[in-house]
Amino acid sequence: MPPVTPMRFLAKAGWSRLVSGLVEDYLVYGTVKKDGFPAYGRITNVRDLILFQTPTHLSAKEFLFPQRETLLKFNMEDGGHEPVVDAPAQVIIGMHSCDIHAMNLMDVVFAYGTPDANYLARRANTIVIGTDCFPDQYCFCPSVGTDKVNEGFDLYLHPIKKGFLVRTGTERGGAILKKYASSRQATASEERELKALDKRKEGSFVTKLDAPHTELPAIYAQSDNSPVWDKIGAICYGCGSCNNVCPTCYCFDVKDEVKPDLRTGERVRVWDGCTLEEFSLVAGGHNFRRPRSARLRHRMNRKFRYLAGVFNAPFCVGCGRCIRTCLVRINIAEVTNELIREYRSR
């Protein structure tokens, strides 16, 4: 359990000093705008940061589970293999509650069974500063219980009129707050101001799931033959964008890349996606989930049923990214609501 620490008040100038200090000592990433859209980018100055936005187009998973990551370096002549664990000391600023929940799930996924050295080393070297956010019409975090977060972050920032209220999630978070900036205990009126803001935010969600998320594993389990799969399978391009943007899609491929010297190379892990056609192809040419409908059904079942059963929490954190990015407007919340309707009318 995270330490329960009182809320601190940090003035805007103090926040600037904190970020400036972090930029000196760490690789810092944070939320910015790219082509007008919220995104993560490298931060070298506090002015680069644009906080409290709608969700970023891509999640923060790339900083802990890079799209391409070297696992081994090898020499084809002498057969030498060296493990590579690249874990820079880094800070991610601006992760929203849903994304911190997603990261907490990834922490479990990569630690259970055989621990994944690469992910765990990166995670251990990553300082997370969460922030509040503004939901857009696709966000549905309250429906999956991820609109509030109490662990996983080192610091968490709530904006109020005069500055920020800061929650401390780890000793490391408390230490950097103390090291780089001066803060004071928040007053009762400041905490009331935050509560009022939270309340206003709660009323602003448009997308909702029509059943408690705890019922979804059972509903999905009864929905293998739902007509909804063919309906969305017929329009899906099988492009894998939903897998790319999802903060809890972690399937990967492992392959070798040979350097131009034709003697050395790297075994790399790259993101893969269960909605891509060749994902479940085996050597003899058989594909166990060839139709797009089957691939989409698999992805959504992973989110609400398969992994939820193993790890005891939905693997959809309600960030809405797959909805926003889908070229044909497949909407995981609408699909789920349709399954709920079918289930209840049976």
Binding site: L71, L72, K73, H81, E82, P83, V84, V85, D86, A87, P88, T114, P115, D116, A117, N118, L120, A121, A124, N125, V254, R267
Partner: peptide, 14 residues
């Protein structure tokens, strides 16, 4: 290339 603490697990890919 390990840049981690001494207690980090070994690469399961080796």
């Amino acid at each position: 290339y390990v840049n981690t603490g001494a207690d980090s697990p070994a690469s399961p890919y080796l």
